[in-house]
Amino acid sequence: MKETTEPQNTSNNASKDAQLAAVIASSVIAVGFVIYWTIQIQDMREMLALAYG
């Protein structure tokens, strides 16, 4: 019994770890993306306002 469940547990733990890592990395990328492009779009709007009023 133990021989069959242990590899399964290890696999489940590895899967949970990979999923948690993916959630953390994806969240940070999404936050970085929103911050970067918000700043770029704001800067562009300011430049357009300076150029064309």
Binding site: S15, A18, Q19, A21, A22, A25, S26, A30
Partner: peptide
Amino acid sequence: FVRRPLLRHDIENLNPWVLRMVAVA
């Protein structure tokens, strides 16, 4: 280091929301 190791697991057993988050990121 994140996406490929995640997809090496049985994809059908992974949380679909995690897969969606990874795809969007």
